[in-house]
Design a protein around this nucleic acid. Sequence first.
DNA 1: AATAAAAACTAATAAGTGTTAGTTTTGCAA
DNA 2: TTGCAAAACTAACACTTATTAGTTTTTATT
Lengths: 196, 196
Amino acid sequence: MAKIQSGENSTKKEAIIQKAAFLFKTKGYSATSMRELADSLGVEAPSLYNYIGSKSELLQSICSKMANEFHLNLDVVENNTATAVAKVEAIVRFHIQKMLNNFDEVFVANHEWKHLKEPMLSSFLNQRRNYEKRVMAVFENGIEKNELRITNPYVAVLTILSAVRGLEFWYGHKKNVTQEELENEMVKNLLNGIVK
Amino acid sequence: MAKIQSGENSTKKEAIIQKAAFLFKTKGYSATSMRELADSLGVEAPSLYNYIGSKSELLQSICSKMANEFHLNLDVVENNTATAVAKVEAIVRFHIQKMLNNFDEVFVANHEWKHLKEPMLSSFLNQRRNYEKRVMAVFENGIEKNELRITNPYVAVLTILSAVRGLEFWYGHKKNVTQEELENEMVKNLLNGIVK
DNA sequence: AATAAAAACTAATAAGTGTTAGTTTTGCAA
DNA sequence: TTGCAAAACTAACACTTATTAGTTTTTATT
């Protein structure tokens, strides 16, 4: 009957993943059925299996894609910025932008990872721990170089990254704040708290 | 066979709700089955219905209990603290303490509310919007009285409350940070960013 | 127009869901 | 010890779940 529509630059598999991200975000992974996903693509559920292996594979694709992108950005930041403060700002800005531009997928990676199956679950958590450590190293470096006035880098990382993650709470509210304003104001509030 | 164990100060219904909160937090509402909940209480699933009305009633109990407690605290803070800065600090500290002392239930109210059924869903979201507005009023008052240097109270509320909510991320990590240290350090980092 | 591959379909399966009905066991009061 | 209510049980229901098998339709190529 109907065909799975995919944009010019995306395969049909990618179209399925994108819709899945939207539904997983909206209803949660477990509460989203394959029939529902198929329905929203104008197709019967078994047809999806021409493109994907399983429901859990969809979740896995989303989570690992996000993990990779965040790690990749950290590589760039570590090599291309001078001061620790500049690194922190670059990291915060990337998180904010990702949050605003790839909301569905970031949200799913942040909230639905617990439904990953082993061994992907362990792998995902390992990657995340690793990411945290690398960010924390940036903060520690900032303390050594006397750029930051924080005393506990772990708490600082936790505080800042969580604050940014909280943008998901803002999403949909659509107050009279532009994306740029929000980003700048947030960076200011957060960095003011820790920069010397 | 086995009986549902309830602590000295709690009814059996409360014991069920508490275990439900733990499971809903750990596996998510949809992925938690009544059989599983019963199992963890050493009982068969239908036995639960001697004490509760339905699965969704469990979620409702948890969410509305948390909503009430946060509102109640705000009543106290509004009346019993002098400056806006003191109010902000008191709110932040309450959020942190709740997060650390009633982790399961706070987590569920924060993450699983979307599975509430109407009309409780709308009611819950209304309460939350209301809470935000009241907190925002505190910030606006702080700007008027020249106590705060923020320019956008909405972004500030978002940033601070999200940062605190991010404690869920810390929970379980058990770094070498005591609860008090964490609370004080976090309050410092956050207030430094906005207090004049 | 014929053919082969891609992609949709229908039907079915086995497992799991919340919940109800009806029955048995348990524990306490008389 | 008897009797009664509270609280457990078993069996079953009507649905929903992800997924597979097998078949038909669509699409593009020769």
